[in-house]
Design a protein around this nucleic acid. Structure first.
Length: 478
RNA sequence: GGCCCCAUCGUCUAACGGUUAGGACACUACCCUUUCAAGGUAGCGAUACGGGUUCGAAUCCCGUUGGGGUCACCA
């Protein structure tokens, strides 16, 4: 049996980290088995639909480098992959369920439902689902009222007794008491299906073999099995993955202020690092390695190494990982081009060419920035003469005014400010003045960089070049 | 509240009945050093609790507690 997995994001807002997480695991598992990974947009909630969201979700996947075998941008014969375009299909199966007696029409208005629910809550009922008022309407009455134009929804007729066993691939059998189950709405008043129906119909029609989704779906899986059963279809392998949590221990969510994938991207997190980080949430490489690629994951993935406790998202560790990719994993040329691309996208790189000089700056800065954004925040003095002087740098700059002219003189005498030329000169000068090396270096650094945090002095001088260094010294000498 | 899931350092995790409970992030100290980093070394720090089973339990079973999820004409 060939594996088919999917993600079914809902285009309601910002591209969610949870979607990226699911996309990773679904695509890795499919690839590992030479199967197919598909993306289906679940947009059947017209009220929450967000027109830009759809494209942004697909863009996020592109950015991450997760390539679906089928999606709204890559349709095949199993499509369309936009769920609302399949509404006719869903309706047809809802009617089939209705005809076979596995479902029924319910004519309650939203107001009635609200009222009864509130009453149930007030009574502290343990069962808070639909009270099944219309479950026992005769077929004649149901047909007649529908024909008369009364609006209705189609609900699942869940069994009232017995048990439904869901076999979760990670947790084993999970037993639900049917009496706890609800007569869920399958087809809404507006003719669109709910998730429960739509997902099951589409998964089946698209040949999905393994439903890998977040743990929040576990409790509605018995409903899904009942739908499948009513339609005479076989259930897929259910795999409910552990939670992604945010600092408070709650479910990670954009609504709580947790960053979206776009937020990470805009801060200068690399897709490789994000994916690597997500991969170590709930899963580990067999040898315990922390730095691994999606390809490594495809090679070594197994459900046995998934831990079930939820994982708290730690931005600090993500940043560390990102820094690791910058300084150790990605080649310099790649880092330089990512940095420049980021700068262009966010207005930092105006008039700055992606040339050899730029790459040298990146190389010098390599161990000094963890996100692409940090690079730009720390390097103004490499790319212009109007760099700011920090408060901390102002002090050594003032204190060093008498040594600066001597420094200028010594540097001006050099043919070029190469490392091997400047180092002995600067050290000799410090000694001659009876000063600690730092007392000479810090004023120099403050003058040419405007900050006390910079790459090594000699590399800095060499890269900046004699002309610029001298001009800066002239300007900074009172 | 009913039901469901989960439980090792603050965080991510290793251990698949026998380890001084290991690693990583963070934190602290030291080393390196012209600053800031990076890097290196060391330290701090966990099996939620209570019962069993077993020669032996982080590991298996039960209970308690705690956390999370779910109970929408949202997904």
């Amino acid at each position: 049996m060939s594996v088919v997995t999917r993600i079914a994001p809902s285009p309601t807002g910002d591209p969610h980290v949870g979607t990226a997480y699911q996309a990773l695991f679904n695509s890795v598992f499919a690839r590992q088995h030479g199967g197919k990974f598909i993306v289906r947009l679940e947009d059947t909630d017209r009220s929450r639909y967000n027109a830009t969201s759809e494209g942004r979700i697909l863009d996020m996947l592109d950015w991450l480098g997760i390539v679906p075998d089928a999606s709204p941008r890559n349709e095949d014969d199993k499509g369309p992959y936009i769920q609302s375009q399949r509404a006719g299909l869903h309706r047809q199966y809802a009617e089939q369920l209705l005809a076979s007696g596995a479902a029924y029409r319910a004519f309650d208005t939203t107001e009635e439902l609200d009222e009864r629910r509130k009453a149930a809550e007030a009574r502290k009922d343990s069962y808070l689902g639909y009270d099944r008022r219309d479950r026992h309407l005769s077929a004649e009455e149901s047909d007649w009222r529908a024909a008369a134009g009364e609006e209705f929804v189609i609900r699942l007729k869940a069994p009232l007794e017995g048990k439904t066993v869901v076999h979760d691939h990670l947790r084993g059998d999970v037993v639900f008491d049917n009496a706890e189950l609800d007569d869920k709405v399958l087809l809404k008043r507006d003719g669109f299906p709910t998730y429960h129906l739509a997902a099951m119909v589409d998964d089946h029609l698209m040949g999905v073999t393994h439903v890998i989704r977040a743990e929040e779906w576990l409790t509605s899986t018995p409903i899904h099995q009942l739908i499948l059963q009513g339609l005479g279809w076989q259930a897929p392998v259910w795999i409910h993955t552990p939670w992604l949590l945010s600092a408070g221990g709650k479910k990670y969510s954009k609504r709580r202020g947790d960053p979206s994938v776009e937020d990470f991207r805009n801060k200068g997190i690399l897709p490789e690092a994000l994916l690597n980080y997500l991969g170590m949430m709930g899963w580990t490489m067999p040898n315990g390695e922390e730095i691994f690629s999606v390809d490594d994951m495809v090679q070594h993935f197994s459900w046995e190494r998934v831990s079930l406790g939820g994982s708290t998202f730690d931005v600090q560790k993500l940043k560390w990982l990102n820094g690791k990719y910058i300084r150790e994993v990605l080649p310099l040329a790649t880092v330089a081009s990512r940095v420049h691309g980021f700068g262009t996208e966010h207005g930092y790189a105006q008039g700055i060419a992606e040339d050899k000089y730029f790459t040298q700056v990146v190389e010098l800065m390599l161990p000094r920035f963890e996100t692409l954004q940090e690079f730009w925040e720390k390097t103004a003095y490499f790319f212009g003469e109007d760099y700011p002087v920090t408060d901390k740098a102002a002090k050594p700059l003032a204190e060093g005014q008498d040594v600066l002219p001597k420094l200028r003189e010594a540097l001006a005498a050099l043919p070029a400010l190469t490392h091997d030329q400047t180092e002995p000169v600067l050290k000799a000068l410090a000694e001659a003045q009876g000063l600690k090396v730092g007392k000479v270096m810090q004023p120099l650094r403050a003058a040419v960089a405007g900050t006390l945090e910079s790459p090594g002095m000699f590399e800095l001088l060499e890269l900046l070049g004699k002309e610029r260094v001298l001009a800066r010294l002239d300007r900074m000498m009172k």
